[in-house]
Lab assay of single mutants.
Amino acid sequence: HNLTITQGKLFFHYNPKLCLSEIHKMEEVSGTKGRQERNDIALKTNGDQASCENELLKFSYIRTSFDKILLRWEPYWPPDFRDLLGFMLFYKEAPYQNVTEFDGQDACGSNSWTVVDIDPPLRSNDPKSQNHPGWLMRGLKPWTQYAIFVKTLVTFSDERRTYGAKSDIIYVQTDATNPSVPLDPISVSNSSSQIILKWKPPSDPNGNITHYLVFWERQAEDSELFELDYCLKGLKLPSRTWSPPFESEDSQKHNQSEYEDSAGECCSCPKTDSQILKELEESSFRKTFEDYLHNVVFVPRKTSSGTGAEDPRPSRKRRSLGDVGNVTVAVPTVAAFPNTSSTSVPTSPEEHRPFEKVVNKESLVISGLRHFTGYRIELQACNQDTPEERCSVAAYVSARTMPEAKADDIVGPVTHEIFENNVVHLMWQEPKEPNGLIVLYEVSYRRYGDEELHLCVSRKHFALERGCRLRGLSPGNYSVRIRATSLAGNGSWTEPTYFYVTDYLDVPSNIA
């Protein structure tokens, strides 16, 4: 807008934040220059609390790290170098490059900038070799853009010569660093050979998330399962459950009422301010606690030095998902009996873990797994792929695949051998790939016309006998059925096997 004052003059007093240069501009645009008398524009009460600059400061050096910015700028000295009290560095987070010096300023003089007072450097006698002032900004957020400017702080001049310097606002972004852990990993099994893994992005990506790394490792069953005799009275049979499938998407929606109208769909109840505040506090606490764990609990591995020492970490090797089922080394339970199943799973520490690289999504279907087997899954978020990966501390989750139908069934015939004193040795093959492992066998036998009897055969007993022995049988026709019990439950009964026990007292003698 054009402003013209045809008559009258300007009068400025007691404006401590208004620089004289701005008042002189007002004289020019209003056409009143030359009308004012000496005392109409006070030299001592206008701009006496402001830094009124008329020179431009330029930054000469900028260096960044993930949490620091090192700045240096060209030296500046007023005509009387004693008038320079120091520099004021202003900075704040700036997602967009549209910041002005006066953003967030209120009537009390406060604003949204963080201000650092910096002492002037030592003055050199040689004007050509003056030290460049600077400042190291610490405690910054990774991968965050900051708006920065600097200006001088000078003393009051009796001659009211307006001098000083100020830089333009520059924008500097800190470097990326390792992201925080992925949030809320959930693993479920939808079949006997697959596990579905879902997660949420890290709360602090500290860069642009480029991919996720998912490692999985087959877990050995508890050692007590191999040692305890679950045929003993009072000892509860062990059981394991597989990871249940995901709930429906509708039930997972946030901010939804727990109660549904019987007449149909209901609208979600909005969260109160107290609920939102509580969630923010919980989120802040979780982030602080995660940072504490990362800094205190997890110790970084030592990389190899120039002395030739090897990095103890196993090298990563990509495998196809079809090879995942046989990740671990199978060892027989008892070496003397080769027909026992290889369900003991000690994992070799030198073995390469299978892994998958996930790009542009937060889910993965891990296939080719062994049925009813526990897996430990390790999830890392990465925001750099080359020249070397920059990934987060791992988040861990466990899951067990679903049982395989008929995996616990005894394959092959049940054979028998009759000894003296009416002892019958029953023999059968253990299931080759049971659900988890076989903890015991149930032997059901009966003599024709009598009630059915049951015998429990422990895992250890089966390994020693290759089956079991029935003792003290009365003469007669017998039928026997056997079924295995694994961590997933009972298998199917075998087809009945028949044998006849004679009275050993009636056996004919070869003595003449």
Rank of each mutant, 00 (worst) to 15 (best):
N208E: 11
C391T: 03
L225G: 02
G264E: 04
L453M: 10
V424S: 01
E362Q: 13
L225I: 10
R353P: 15
M427C: 01
A463Q: 06
N435C: 03
N208A: 04
A484S: 02
V359Y: 11
S344F: 04
R400T: 05
I438N: 03
S320H: 13
P508L: 07
P349T: 08
H294E: 03
Q256L: 13
A407S: 11
S283A: 09
P312V: 15
Q219V: 06
E221N: 04
Y396W: 06
K460P: 11
F289A: 06
E217H: 13
K357V: 11
Q380R: 08
K460W: 14
S284M: 15
A336I: 08
V345S: 11
L505I: 10
Y212F: 14
A381K: 01
R353I: 15
C267R: 00
K317M: 07
F285Y: 12
D291W: 14
L369S: 02
A399Q: 11
L437T: 00
A220R: 07
D291A: 10
A463W: 10
P244V: 10
G412M: 14
K460S: 12
L277H: 11
C267L: 04
S315H: 09
S320M: 06
F298D: 05
V359I: 13
E378V: 12
L437F: 04
P238K: 08
N255F: 02
P346I: 15
I276E: 11
L453A: 03
R353F: 04
E378R: 06
H416P: 10
V501K: 02
W493R: 05
Q384H: 06
S283Q: 10
V296K: 13
K361A: 08
D385H: 12
N477P: 09
Y498D: 05
L464D: 14
I482N: 00
K432I: 07
M427P: 01
K302P: 11
D409W: 06
F337N: 15
L293V: 07
R218N: 12
S262A: 05
R301H: 15
T272N: 12
F372N: 09
D503T: 05
H416R: 05
S283L: 12
V501Q: 02
E452A: 11
G264Q: 03
N208R: 06
L440F: 09
H294Y: 04
E362M: 08
S341K: 06
Q380K: 05
C456Y: 02
G306T: 11
A484Q: 02
L470I: 11
G489M: 08
H294V: 06
S398T: 13
Q275F: 08
K236I: 06
Q252T: 12
Y478H: 10
V358R: 09
P205A: 08
P332D: 09
N421Y: 03
E433Y: 08
Q384A: 02
T415G: 05
S458A: 07
R446A: 05
E420G: 05
S262T: 11
Y478V: 01
F246Q: 12
D273T: 04
Q380F: 15
T307Y: 07
P244W: 11
R481S: 05
T497A: 08
K287N: 12
P300W: 06
E430H: 13
V359A: 08
L464H: 14
A381V: 05
R481E: 05
C468S: 03
Y445S: 04
V296M: 09
S398D: 08
F285T: 04
Q256K: 12
E356H: 09
N255L: 04
T241E: 02
A263V: 11
D408E: 01
P349E: 00
A220G: 13
G207T: 02
S248P: 10
V393T: 15
R466G: 15
H425C: 03
D506M: 10
D222H: 15
A395N: 10
P431L: 02
E265N: 11
C382F: 00
F226D: 04
D311P: 05
T494D: 01
R483G: 01
G322A: 11
C468G: 02
T272G: 08
T210K: 15
S344Y: 08
V324C: 03
Y292A: 11
R313P: 13
G489R: 09
D273R: 14
S398N: 05
N360R: 13
R313M: 03
S509C: 03
K302I: 08
R286P: 04
A394F: 09
